[in-house]
Simulated scan of single mutants.
Amino acid sequence: MNVLETLLLVWAAGGVLSRDGDRLHIEAPKGAIPPQLLDALRANKASLLALLPMRAPAQADEATK
C-alpha cells in the first residue's frame, strides 16, 4: 500500500492523521483503523512524516487535555 492509499483509507475510516515531531498522531473512532492499515501506517511512516505538516502548538495542547 502506498502513502496516498494509506492516507485515503485513514480518511475513509473517519480518521485524521497529523504529525507531532517524529511521531504520527491518529484521531479516529474506536476500532475504525484495522490492523492492516496500522501496518501500512508503520511501513509508510517516514514518507508520511515528510508529507504532513507539523501540528500547531494549539492543536498539540488541545490533544493533551
Score class of each variant (00 low, 15 high):
27 E>H: 05
31 G>L: 09
44 N>C: 00
59 Q>F: 01
48 L>A: 05
10 V>D: 02
7 L>I: 09
27 E>L: 03
20 D>Y: 02
30 K>N: 03
50 A>G: 14
30 K>D: 04
4 L>S: 04
20 D>R: 06
15 G>M: 10
16 V>W: 08
25 H>F: 01
7 L>F: 14
62 E>V: 13
41 L>M: 11
10 V>L: 04
16 V>P: 06
49 L>A: 09
21 G>T: 10
42 R>W: 14
10 V>Q: 02
33 I>W: 05
48 L>F: 00
62 E>G: 05
55 R>W: 00
38 L>I: 09
1 M>Y: 03
7 L>C: 13
19 R>I: 13
38 L>W: 04
33 I>V: 13
48 L>Y: 00
22 D>Q: 11
42 R>S: 08
53 P>G: 13
54 M>G: 14
21 G>P: 00
53 P>S: 11
31 G>T: 11
15 G>C: 11
1 M>R: 02
63 A>G: 07
40 A>Q: 10
64 T>C: 14
65 K>C: 15
18 S>E: 10
7 L>A: 06
56 A>C: 02
13 A>Q: 06
25 H>I: 06
38 L>N: 10
64 T>W: 11
40 A>I: 04
46 A>Q: 14
47 S>E: 14
26 I>R: 08
31 G>E: 07
28 A>W: 13
52 L>D: 12
48 L>T: 03
44 N>H: 01
60 A>H: 06
1 M>E: 02
47 S>K: 07
52 L>H: 10
11 W>Q: 11
14 G>S: 07
10 V>S: 04
44 N>Q: 06
61 D>Y: 01
52 L>F: 04
45 K>S: 09
37 L>M: 07
51 L>G: 07
65 K>S: 15
49 L>Q: 07
44 N>Y: 00
53 P>N: 12
40 A>S: 12
60 A>C: 08
